[in-house]
Amino acid sequence: MDHLLQPVLPAHFAVIAGWLDSPAATLRWAGPGVPIPLPADDAFAAALALPARPGWALLDADGTCVGFGQYWQTTPGNTHLGRIIVSPQARGRGLGRVLMTALCAEAVRRTASVQLTLKVYRENQAAVALYRDLGFVASEDACTPELLFMARRTA
């Protein structure tokens, strides 16, 4: 099945917000400072700081949004990936890999970064395994008991 990564559109906001089924899930995914529940209207863009942190939607062959992620430059040459999520109904089909591969490529293309970083909860073993498989390595000095800070060189 073909998938397309495109800039997130207002039509996707309610779909993505609907994937977060509790205040705890929203906090874990979006971080502190984001309203709970996550707005499903135009306030979604402001809540996730989309102008400064581009958001990308993964669409399936039917045009249905099945994934989302963001990236932002933290320092020259370094780009952080965050708020990565696959629709609960689409999980287990390899779409995390599709999303991450496309998101990484887009981030590097648009920012010319030499390093990509991300944070992941240690107990999210599927995500940790995927990120390791994609070349991300934990930087233990930056990790916490709850979170792994992972990085990957792009060149």
Rank of each mutant, 00 (worst) to 15 (best):
V120Y: 07
H80M: 10
T144L: 06
Y121Q: 13
R93G: 03
M100C: 12
F136I: 02
A90Q: 14
R83P: 01
Y131K: 02
R122N: 03
A127I: 04
R91H: 02
V120D: 03
A102K: 14
L118Y: 07
Y121W: 04
D133M: 00
V114K: 14
R132W: 00
S139H: 13
D133E: 10
V128S: 06
V128I: 01
Y121N: 05
T117Q: 09
S139W: 11
Q125P: 00
M100L: 12
A112H: 14
N78E: 15
A107D: 04
C104P: 04
Q89V: 11
T75A: 15
S139K: 13
T74A: 08
D141T: 12
A138V: 11
Y121K: 09
T111L: 10
V108R: 11
H80Q: 13
V137G: 01
H80N: 14
I84D: 01
G92L: 11
Q73D: 12
M100Q: 09
K119L: 06
L95H: 09
C104I: 01
S139L: 13
E140Q: 14
E140V: 12
A142Y: 10
T117N: 06
T117H: 02
A126R: 09
A90M: 12
L99G: 06
F68I: 01
V137T: 15
L134H: 03
P76L: 11
L99V: 05
T101R: 12
Q125S: 09
R83I: 04
G69S: 05
L95D: 07
P88C: 06
G92C: 05
E123F: 13
Y71S: 08
Y131V: 02
L103N: 06
P76S: 10
R83N: 11
G82K: 03
R132H: 10
L130P: 08
Q115A: 07
R91W: 02
S113R: 05
D141W: 02
H80K: 07
N78C: 12
Y121D: 07
E123D: 14
Q89E: 15
Q70T: 10
A126Q: 13
T75W: 10
D133R: 12
T111K: 10
V114N: 09
R109T: 13
S87C: 10
F68H: 15
Y71F: 15
A107T: 06
T74L: 07
D133A: 14
E123I: 04
Y71G: 01
G82Y: 02
W72C: 10
E106C: 11
Y131I: 01
A142G: 00
A129P: 01
A102M: 13
T75H: 12
K119P: 00
L81D: 07
C104Y: 01
K119Q: 14
T101S: 15
N78H: 12
A142R: 15
V98Q: 12
A90E: 11
H80L: 04
L81Y: 03
T101F: 00
A126M: 00
E106G: 00
G96F: 06
A129I: 00
L103T: 08
L81E: 05
S139M: 10
A112N: 14
